[in-house]
Simulated assay, not measured.
Amino acid sequence: MQSMTSGGKRVVFFDLETTGFDTTVCDIIQLAAISGDRSFNVFTVPKTAIDRGAAEVTGFSVRDGALFLHGVAMTTVTLHKALTSFISFLWSLEQPVLLAAHNARHFDVPILTRALLRCSLMEQFQQLGSSFLDTLPLSKALYPGLESYKQENLVSRFLRKPYNAHNALGDVTALQELYSCWNPDPRFVIQFSF
């Protein structure tokens, strides 16, 4: 798939899987991103326990200091390494970038920001000059009156196919396809960027 641009910025779709839904305390378990045919995907062992609800949704568990996905041991890196690798991945792309996530403003960005601060990487990240796009309110504005704006439901409605939901790499791949299908006007996209 060709990488997309909006307003002169390369769109990079990203997603986090976390230990829970409370953005003030949950830890990152998986961080994935995609732009065109370039993808990024890392796993990290969280410091906090995985909430039962999050474990049921994602299939992640931690045993004896190792991360498992549906019972399969995953190769992990430290959170610091995950974030520095993510920053390197973003630098490897044509600049500037627009980081897009579904519910970015209220979930992914607060958690990513907290993790970057915790690892003393915020300054490095800010040097990218990236901005964010929240595709959740964008989808509501593009298609008012839908019953649900959950990404799974939007993929089912517009792409008419199932996908590996609640796996960050599956989520970003599906979101890139959705965005391509919608093909929103850049002047419209800027309203939901921050």
Rank of each mutant, 00 (worst) to 15 (best):
R114C: 11
L90C: 10
A174C: 03
I29P: 00
D37N: 15
N153Q: 14
M1V: 08
D22G: 04
L16R: 00
N167I: 07
Y163M: 01
A165C: 09
C26Y: 07
D64L: 12
T44K: 04
I190H: 13
L175K: 00
Y143F: 15
S92D: 13
D37G: 10
I28E: 02
I34M: 11
N153S: 14
S61F: 01
T5L: 11
V97H: 07
S88T: 14
I28F: 03
D185Y: 06
T19C: 01
T135H: 01
L16E: 08
V172Y: 06
P110R: 08
L128A: 02
C26N: 03
A174E: 00
L98H: 08
M122S: 09
D51G: 08
A33L: 04
G65C: 04
T84K: 00
L133A: 06
T76I: 01
L67V: 11
G145T: 06
N164W: 10
P144W: 07
Q151P: 03
F13T: 10
V109A: 11
A174R: 08
M74A: 11
L69P: 04
T75C: 05
A66M: 14
D171Y: 03
H102P: 10
G7A: 07
D64N: 15
D134G: 04
W91P: 01
L67P: 06
I28D: 02
R10L: 14
L67K: 00
D108F: 05
P186W: 05
S92R: 08
V72M: 02
T44G: 09
M122V: 02
F89T: 00
G170I: 02
N103Y: 13
A54F: 01
E17M: 13
L178H: 00
F125I: 10
Q95D: 09
A66S: 12
L154G: 07
T84Q: 12
A82Q: 03
F68V: 03
G71E: 06
R10G: 02
A32I: 09
A101L: 06
A168L: 02
P96L: 13
M74L: 13
M1N: 08
F21L: 15
W91E: 15
G53I: 02
P184S: 03
R38Q: 13
R118A: 15
Y149F: 14
A66R: 14
S6G: 12
Y149T: 01
D134E: 09
M4Y: 09
H70Y: 13
K9G: 00
M4R: 14
G170P: 11
F43Q: 04
G20I: 04
D22I: 06
A174M: 11
I111D: 01
T84R: 05
D22V: 09
H106D: 15
A49L: 15
G36W: 11
L136T: 00
P184Q: 05
N183G: 10
P186E: 09
S6W: 11
E123I: 12
Q176D: 08
A73M: 11
Y143M: 13
A73F: 01
Y179S: 07
D64Y: 04
S193C: 15
